[in-house]
Design a protein around this nucleic acid. Sequence first.
DNA 1: GGAAACTACGTTAACGCTAACGTAGATCGC
DNA 2: GCGATCTACGTTAGCGTTAACGTAGTTTCC
Lengths: 352, 352
Amino acid sequence: MEDKTKSRRKAASKRSTKAPAKIEDVARHAGVSIMTVSRAMRGVEGVSAKKRAEILRLAKRLNYQPSSVAGSLAAANSTLIGVSVPTLFEAVFAEIFDGMRATFANAGLQTVMDTTEYDKTHEQSWVDRMISWRPAGIILSGAEHSAHTRSRIRAAGIPALEIWDFTEDPIDLCVGVDHHAAGLEMGEHLVKLGYRRPAYVGVEQDRDARAENRLEGLRSAFESFGLSNDHDIRAGKQASFEAGFNGVRTMLSTAAPRPDVIYFLNDHMAFGGLMACERAGLKVPRDIGIVGFNGLNINKVLDKPITTSLTHRSLMGETGAKMLVAKILGAKTERTVALPVDLQDGETTRRQ
Amino acid sequence: MEDKTKSRRKAASKRSTKAPAKIEDVARHAGVSIMTVSRAMRGVEGVSAKKRAEILRLAKRLNYQPSSVAGSLAAANSTLIGVSVPTLFEAVFAEIFDGMRATFANAGLQTVMDTTEYDKTHEQSWVDRMISWRPAGIILSGAEHSAHTRSRIRAAGIPALEIWDFTEDPIDLCVGVDHHAAGLEMGEHLVKLGYRRPAYVGVEQDRDARAENRLEGLRSAFESFGLSNDHDIRAGKQASFEAGFNGVRTMLSTAAPRPDVIYFLNDHMAFGGLMACERAGLKVPRDIGIVGFNGLNINKVLDKPITTSLTHRSLMGETGAKMLVAKILGAKTERTVALPVDLQDGETTRRQ
DNA sequence: GGAAACTACGTTAACGCTAACGTAGATCGC
DNA sequence: GCGATCTACGTTAGCGTTAACGTAGTTTCC
């Protein structure tokens, strides 16, 4: 009877070639209690050095890997940090993530990442799934989240960090840059350089709230001088070289009078746009100005560096990770940190 | 006594503002058994429509989120797919990942990703941590893994996919391209175009096994014509624009006689190198040839597209994901799939 | 040299959930 | 009209681990 039940259970489970070893197997082989194995594996006190060594050797031989699932259920704590980024196609998020790595590794926390495709529904379901794993912390990109997302995270009492966009009113913690201010600063700079007919080239759908904020900043700069931005071109789904290229082609074939400067969603789009301008016979910056955002790597190899706003992605990641770790450990930390953006006057805009 | 034990336990747990609702809370509020709530939440049979609706409403109100930790321990199954990529700085892996997304989402599987930094020790510990969560499947980049990694995955009996590099002898499943063959094909092409003094520009440390395979392929092509590649420059840690730029600068200042063609680790490095050549007054392809790998996005906007080998990253991701899902569901699938690489003759190498 | 303190274990009871099985009451078939 | 089947639940026994506590044997201290 006993036997039958067991074999049934086994057969019902996925075609398990061989069930992986569990703590009980190690205990039996070592002739000790389960608890002693548990202590030995975790390196906590209460086991003699000799027995510990023996148990560890046995565990290795049996290919025993403690189950984090059972472990975190029993201990009610976890070492997971859930990270959500809109896309991996923009190097920015890879750089932020890279900046966080060391801090989390030092704290013994492991990150698990997924992408939301700039979609709030995606993000919501990601948050729910993530919470169901009871992580030690959660990281979201940007500062605009659905009410559902905010309340779920708060209700779960999980430390959370919003990164990239700055807000005074975060779910929990926030580190980022003020995108509106960055756009405004760039706009004022361009006005000062004498530009009067700005255009914008971004991606289809205004899913990227930060980019929209920058555009608004730029617009208000021009508007405060009585100038308006009529040309708002959206091309492609991702902020790629190609999208920038196509956006400019579209613009040049439709816009009259021609804009005198183009503000791009980021440097990659700006480079694509630069290529399109030159292909169309326009000299940059003589005939038209090109402006990007982020200060991406490509800028370092171009003959004519693109005028852009440099963001400090790695520092941002590190700062955010430290704040989150502090919060998780119950230490004091600032709730919000705003990082500066450095305007870099390149050679794709005219000299003053 | 009973009470004391409970409160002690509570106090000992992390400063829980308020413990999140559990299935028991919902059951109590709804006046039904725990099992009925479980069934209602999972949408399985055995609950009347009326009760189900009521329970779901209650769950929402109590902010109840079923614990995946407890759930997968009890049900001994999981919906996790662990994905390991060497770096997020190369768009290639983002594209492969993107290609997999839809397939996994349709199968109700969720991915969790982390990076290994091209480090086998990193990868090993990632595999161990991942296995401890008992995922439904595991995805590794490349085909060179430590014995420990291979045996652990096999011992755990978890379906695994190796992607990007092709091998006849995978841990479990494999989809990728033959990098050696791609290098060989490009080498033969360059010989045919009349190139005789090839050079290579890659990154410091030969951590990227695929890139080394391509280089070997290229070399054997030249060697079979009695030509050798003397110039092997390593610059930077990441395969960035800048690394390509710096690599070429180094090369031009040291190499004599000057190589007539440079093979780069990828298109981004090639573009950086192209910039460095032009900065140095060399005309491409008149004075020197530039060759990349991957067929990255930037190539679509360049006046002179870079000669490269196009890889089909999105297709690769999709193919691999389908194979893995099939394996997880117990369906038949091929063990290995080799995808083609398309040589694209650009304008950074001379015409025949 | 005997109580106190420690060391190195073992035992028990969770952790939050689900599989498997049990069971009233309703429905059905002939 | 009565056994057979079905529906909608409830009960029981884990899943693999750890926290908390219990307990022999050993050491320490004055």
